[in-house]
């Protein structure tokens, strides 16, 4: 299952990456060789084997609904590339 430039363009779109033509060519061949390498997993029988997503049991952490100190608005916005009226500002999304 060879990876094509079209596959790379599709993944780049999903990942929100604007790749140059050069990058598309490089990643097509590099991803292809990495994916060929990982095909060795096919030789492992995994019928009935549960997948491991986490090695420790992850429980949902809940706490009492008490008001606690949190970041104030100025601190939360301090790193924003653009802000306006106490909000993060982006370009218009509804034409």
């Amino acid at each position: 299952m060879a990876i094509t430039k079209k596959d790379v363009e599709h993944a780049a779109m999903l990942a929100r990456l604007e790749l140059s033509e050069d990058e598309k060519v490089t990643y097509t061949s590099q991803l292809d060789s990495i994916l060929k390498y990982v095909e060795n997993l096919r030789s492992v029988s995994t019928d009935g084997i549960e997948p491991t997503a986490h090695v420790v049991p992850v429980k949902i952490s809940l706490r009492e609904d008490n008001v606690k100190e949190s970041l104030v608005q100025d601190e939360a916005l301090a790193n924003a590339p653009e802000k306006a009226n106490g909000c993060f500002k982006v370009s218009r999304i509804i034409e």
Partner: peptide, 22 residues
């Protein structure tokens, strides 16, 4: 989004994001 991420990430990071996304 696309321009920011293309400019901001280096080659190895993009390669891994691409592999993971794919």
């Amino acid at each position: 989004y696309c321009k920011t991420r293309d400019e901001g990430f280096g080659a190895e990071v993009k390669r891994r994001i691409m592999l993971g996304t794919y």
